[in-house]
């Protein structure tokens, strides 16, 4: 099945660890300054999504009971919708209020263009 968002094994490992410490999790993709343009990871429900947000994916991760939701502001999504996103993790220092920062790592988005077939599939 065509997806908009994937996650690397290394990032999935961090998610499993954070899930154990904090319970069910969510991502909201940030834009803008400083720590921006990065996926922010929160306990599910900590960040209140609303009608201005789009749910891009429910990531199934081995060893995590429930899917990890991946959200983005709708206006931002209009500018990103032609790309496929992969949540990765790199050594890092800080990232807003995202849960992974104290562990010395930081989630990062890697992107590629969706193929015409994927785009058609997702738009249908």
């Amino acid at each position: 099945m065509t997806s908009r968002v994937a996650i690397t094994p290394a990032a999935a490992e961090v998610i499993r660890s954070l899930r154990g410490a904090h319970g069910p999790l969510m991502f909201h993709q940030s834009g803008g300054c400083c720590d921006g343009s990065s996926p922010m990871c929160y306990p599910q429900g900590e960040f209140r999504t609303g009608s201005s947000d789009v749910l891009l994916a429910e990531l199934a991760i081995d060893g995590v009971d429930e899917p990890v939701t991946f959200w983005m502001g709708a206006a931002q999504f209009e500018r990103w919708r032609h790309t496929h996103l992969t949540v990765d993790v790199v050594p890092g220092r800080g990232s807003g209020f995202s849960l992974e920062a104290p562990e010395g790592v930081r989630f990062l988005i890697r992107s590629r263009l969706l193929t015409p077939e994927e785009q058609a599939d997702l738009d249908s």
Binding site: G31, G96, F97
Partner: peptide
């Protein structure tokens, strides 16, 4: 706060 949009929204919340 000075930072990015998602954290800005969270702080407003």
């Amino acid at each position: 706060f000075t930072g990015e949009t998602t954290t800005g929204r969270l702080i407003m919340q």
